[in-house]
Write a protein that binds this DNA or RNA. Structure first.
Lengths: 254, 254
DNA sequence: TACTTTTCACCTAGGTGCGAAGAT
DNA sequence: ATCTTCGCACCTAGGTGAAAAGTA
């Protein structure tokens, strides 16, 4: 529904906004897994500076966290099935706690749902399309076996700053994100204002232009035929169907 | 958890007790659908006679209802996955209302969850194992394409009387089933007596010997190799791992 | 009379932000 | 000072039987 900016307030809560993609160009009769992981954009730690309303580097990154992969629960499914619908990753959860494994690490099934991130760091989510016959060693607690002769492909998207809770220093931005979460999430209905305040919310969204492009959903094309060489770094950036906004724009988070 | 005796009290409620089976003898690396349907045992309509505590024929069966198939939500999965766990059909729902289609008939996906039965008739549930490459025309609203050259197999089980609500004429039996449902279903916790009444329940269960054998779960063997000839009527009855109680015993229900 | 349908309070199960308290 | 953690009230979503009302 929205893009990739997100916030999370307690270990294991869902990513907000959830990533949603539309995929085309698959072989309709081939079975695929579709998975998501989230990789660091750089080696830095950030803080939000109130008076300039910007994220600023605040030191080097913390030591890496155990890699995890969210395998879309509809996996495996045919290319036809994947292409027919918008693929939503709304059940994916984020945490800063390496210890709580929600389905990850139980050993069997692909039920892992929680990805570990460092708070106040910058990340980039990736979507992977993996042919089923090449997905034998797919696991929620191992990196995706990328680059294995064209059977795995990744689709970079906008970057974002992950925060485990909304820093007070984010001011209006934090307020906006809180209101959006309340407005868009049915479970937060208890916090909604009655009616007319909605008008103010729309205006607030407008004032943060960077938020708008993330409202689009992306369509990726020409997936199955592209041969892969090397590994993660050489991933092909595919074109979005949206408004052409640069996808590497450093997005916010509250 | 229990066997096949069941009751339902409102359109679209779950079958009680849920059917649970354990399967062995599959090809571990082959993909299978597992499905369940419920077929009439005879052409009769029944009523429960209070003074003799028995089901008696009360006329001919009503006209047939649209056939539906419950495809186990874990489908498709590998033989290894199916054999590793007890396969529970606890999400299957029963109804006497042909009009409400819970996921059935929406056209795509195998999400149909509700099977239509005639109240006060006698039925037999069947479990089907279908090799994935033969399951193309599998649908929640069509009969299972049985007998297509060994790719579909069915496993008869105990019969039962379906009632849409518990007839008062069932007396102690109806009371027993109500108590069992309250005792075993977490959603009915609000109706449980505090503690000591449990003792009386166990005694009541004992007094209905027919109920006990249904507590077992069945293990079916030698599934993949058996060639099929003909159709439904010629289905192979496979052996249960339980106490050897005859599986055609006319079980209760109120 | 005998079964069916509706409504309702009461559960499970789980996703929200809030605010107080904790940690560094 | 700044971010994290925990308990909480408040939601969605959906599965129970009891009792009342409907049907034939």
């Amino acid at each position: 529904e929205i893009g990739t900016e997100m916030i999370i307030t307690k270990a294991g809560r869902r990513m907000f906004p959830a990533m949603r993609v539309k995929i085309s160009g698959l072989d309709p009769h081939q079975q695929y897994y579709i998975a998501m992981d989230i990789v660091p954009v750089d080696n830095k730690r950030y803080r939000y500076v109130y008076h300039s309303s910007k994220w600023m580097v605040a030191g080097n990154a913390d030591s890496p966290v155990p890699p995890r992969v969210y395998i879309h629960p509809d996996s495996p499914a045919s290319g036809e099935t994947w292409m027919r619908q918008v693929i939503s990753f709304d059940k994916l959860k984020l945490t800063n706690n390496e210890l709580d494994d929600q389905g990850h690490g139980v050993g069997f099934d692909l039920a892992g749902v929680e990805i570990i991130l460092h708070s106040m760091h910058k990340y980039q989510p990736r979507v992977h399309v993996i042919r089923k016959d090449c997905g034998d060693d797919l696991s929620p607690v191992k990196p995706i076996p990328s680059g294995e002769g064209g059977e795995s492909l990744l689709l970079p998207r906008d970057s974002f700053h992950y925060c485990h809770s909304i820093p007070k220093s984010t001011g209006n931005l934090g307020f906006l994100i809180t209101r959006l979460k309340i407005d868009r999430n049915p479970f937060a209905k208890g916090f909604r204002d009655s009616g007319r305040n909605r008008m103010g919310l729309e205006a607030l969204v407008e004032s943060y232009a960077f938020w708008r492009p993330s409202l689009r959903t992306l369509t990726f094309e020409d997936i199955p035929g592209i041969p892969k060489q090397g590994n993660a770094g050489s991933s092909t950036l595919l074109q979005g169907s949206g408004s052409g906004v640069p996808s590497t724009h450093p997005h916010l988070l509250p």
